[in-house]
Design a protein around this nucleic acid. Structure first.
Lengths: 349, 349
DNA sequence: ACCGCTATTCAAAGCGGTTTGGATGGGGCA
DNA sequence: TGCCCCATCCAAACCGCTTTGAATAGCGGT
């Protein structure tokens, strides 16, 4: 069923039918009603490709997810982000196109996306410090919103980010206030901008308390359960073990918790844990009561915000890029408590 | 830079340029070389929309992920599956379009996808027993491959699935062979086909050993760490606690492990755990040595297979639907061991 | 020198929509 | 009654590419 068919069926011209369906004013209400009824009845949908060609708008947003060959993990946060963004697109009648781009030929990939013209805008995932893709997209003149930020890029660009440094600064201060002095950081890979910022926040809070970060108590890597476990285990066996851990992901936190158990330590009493919580659907931090004390910020919500911002940019290009900085809330669970001296604990448990 | 521009620039007709670039034989080699050079030099890319409209091929595959409002979890397996499928699409020049479809208006959504014509085929995620979408897609005449199967649908359809029942049957038998008699099942939601099959496999193995499943030792729900933990904790406090757990996901298994610890039990010695392992990037079952004994099958590989099968169907519709049944391998980790009597253990630990 | 064949190239007609620039006809107003 | 304007509708061009059907030219054969 094409527009033409429908028009013929109704004894109208394609023009009128098109206008009736697209809400143009110069069509009689009676006619519009007739057209709409017929369209519904015949289950007519305009062909996307034709519409795109005619209007020059792709009505689609591209999500480009980087696939680096070294650490080939697809960011687990991605699914939830997409779900949030997808809601917004669906409401606005946009499609969502995914492209996996190997780190190697990013340049080519983005240019191709641009010239193929099948998206109206792009959401950039997993920005790194000084990410070159931002300048590239700017050059290409394709509207884009970054999920996160890229330290070191000074030209303004549109982004939605969590205030990672502030979140981790607060979390660290929270632990310091509880009397903790040896705080370990189990972070994500620090070429990723979010991880870098978290470390900065961590160090800033320490500095404010006249402490300096101990390199032996900082680790950065894929945020997995194993990472948390292995890192914590090693650290807990040091001469001066940490009394608290700050982790970048619930999975890591769970790994740390396991290591505590193995060392016969009680979480929240002997050793504290604070983690960041992205509020992923399948990775909840307790039900009503949080288990882990956490800096919480919904990735799904970030998805919604990014999508909304991008659509707005596409409808009406703003004079200068907007941005949104979401504050994580610090929720207190049962994984934190006042510092205890682990060394003395070791001698007389 | 359009085809027409390029043609004019070269003093050729659009026809010839098009043919030169698309490798048709009826164009002189010299001309082809000239055209290609010019195209490269001007960085010409054919407009996707136009090409699609002209050829009638969308060069895109739709992934439809169901969003049920009750359990609004985006399947965590999804990201890895997509990564696998994406590899294949990229190589074949296909795009990937995501659509989130609320359970409510699936019918409408699929019809719309069909008539909008922006995908050449669909991959169906998260099939349920007797899933109505299969008949619908069949009706719509849109090529599709199901990731998983739908029990109760007898007409043949294309699918790629893990042999879930066999995997869980083997896992159960493995535990039985170790002397376990009270085996608990911590399953996914059993309206999902994969979960159903796993339970069947579980029950089949029990039946073969003249045992029947104890309803009190079976639980089905979202496969989260909390689920595993809560279920295991409750079960371990029964009069006749299970000596082994079979779980549908690593997350659940990790939850069970935590419950064991809390009850003062040692995994692999006092209580055994076998889990299914989808080999997700961010959820590894140990490094070289597996931690959990597991039925292992890569979701990413399943993604590749689905994509490959679908593209093949699109290129050349086969007389009847193909299918692939992947066998999970049973890898032995340190989470399993011979059954011990937990009741006696309780009295004299 | 003429003919048929093959190798190249091209004009024009789609693909299925949107959009521009009129037509047409009836109502209001002088 | 005549004229203008507005409300409505339509024919045709266009978006950028593919593809059909035909034209052209060069070549060998007789």
């Amino acid at each position: 069923m094409t527009l033409k068919d429908l028009a013929q069926h109704l004894g109208l011209s394609p023009t009128t039918v098109s206008r009736a369906l697209n809400g143009f004013p110069e069509v009689a209400e009676a006619t519009r009603a007739r057209v709409e009824a017929a369209a519904r009845q015949h289950n007519y949908r305009p062909n996307t490709q034709a519409k795109r060609l005619a209007t020059g708008r792709a009505m689609a947003i591209g999500h480009v997810i980087p696939i680096s060959t070294q650490h080939e993990i697809v960011n687990p946060v991605f699914a939830d982000f997409i779900a949030g963004a997808g809601e917004v697109y669906a409401r606005a009648g946009y499609d969502m196109a995914l492209t996996l781009v190997p780190d190697a030929d990013q340049d080519r990939a983005y240019r191709e996306i641009r010239s193929k013209g099948n998206v109206d805008g792009i959401i950039l995932h997993g920005p790194r410090a000084g990410d070159a893709r931002i300048a590239l997209l700017e050059d290409l003149g394709l509207p884009f919103v970054v999920h996160g930020r890229a330290s070191g890029i000074t030209r303004p660009y549109a982004f939605v980010d969590v205030n990672n440094s502030r979140a981790f600064e607060r979390a660290t201060r929270f632990l310091l206030d509880l009397g903790h002095r040896r705080i370990a950081l189990v972070n994500g890979i620090e070429t990723m901008d979010f991880a870098l910022r978290r470390r900065r926040g961590f160090e800033r809070a320490l500095a404010a308390a006249d402490l300096t970060a101990n390199p032996g108590l900082m680790v950065a890597g894929e945020m997995t359960e194993a990472q948390g476990h292995d890192a914590a285990r090693a650290m807990l066996r040091r001469n001066e073990p940490p009394t608290a851990f700050l982790t970048s992901s619930l999975l890591s936190a769970m790994g740390v918790r396991r290591a505590l158990w193995e060392e016969g330590l009680v979480m929240g009493r002997d050793v504290s844990i604070v983690t960041h919580d992205d509020e992923l659907g399948y990775l909840k931090n307790g039900a009503e009561e949080p288990i882990f004390t956490a800096t919480r910020s919904s990735v799904r919500e970030a998805g919604r915000r990014c999508a909304t911002m991008l659509l707005r940019m596409i409808e009406a290009p703003p004079p200068e890029p907007a941005s949104e900085l979401l504050e994580a809330v610090l929720v207190v669970g049962s994984s934190t408590g006042p510092a205890r001296n682990l060394l003395s604990l070791r001698e007389n448990p």
